[in-house]
Amino acid sequence: MTLLTLESVSRTYGEVKALDGVDLTVAAGELVAVMGPSGSGKSTLLNLAGGLDRPSSGTVAVAGEDLARVRDLAALRRRSVGYVFQELNLIHSLTAVENVMLPRELDGVAARQARQEALAVLDEVGLREQAEAFPDELSGGQRQRVAIARALVGERRLVLADEPTGALDTATGDEILTLLRARADAGAAVLLVTHEPRYAAWADRVIFLRDGRIVDASLLESAR
């Protein structure tokens, strides 16, 4: 099942063509990595995929819904799309579990259920013990795992990750990719933007962008 579809998507900012006629699909169970030099359109692609930005032309569909026709885009984003950014955007006055349950509460889920869901996903990322810790009490790698838990909570099936390994060391970065890979293997569609080849290599498919166009794609033989 295809969870993300981009069809001839272009995005221009004034004179600058950030994306130029990109076609891309990501299916359930698939981890796709996007690589390319800075300014090649990687982040623009991710923002369009998550409905954070709108294409100048072309269509973007999430779980079969054309984003241009969705009335409540914010609700669709909360329900179906999880984001992991390099800037973690954790709220420092909230504990790990409170950070993770926040999107569910915003979506109208009762606090008790939101908390249970949050604890379950913290367990999945190996942070059950740290659920009541504040972000400042956690290591960089643990904070990033909280941010990932927040992106995964509520069974969101499209996960968008923009440089999620940031400045983490390679062993911690590998842990982050292990989590994203496991989520894909469990049936999510994961789109990962990275400039680090070693993390892109966890993907089933690696797409190279240059000047807003897909110049090549490397497909792992017999991927899944």
């Binding site: 292990t178 892109a200 290599a201 993907a203 090549d216 490397s218």
Partner: peptide, 20 residues
């Protein structure tokens, strides 16, 4: 360069899978 990059990336994908 591009052809080599694709080939090397594929090698790296295979190595990463083997490592997993």
């Amino acid at each position: 360069i591009q052809a080599q990059r694709t080939a090397t990336m594929r090698t790296m994908q295979e190595l990463t899978r083997a490592k997993r």
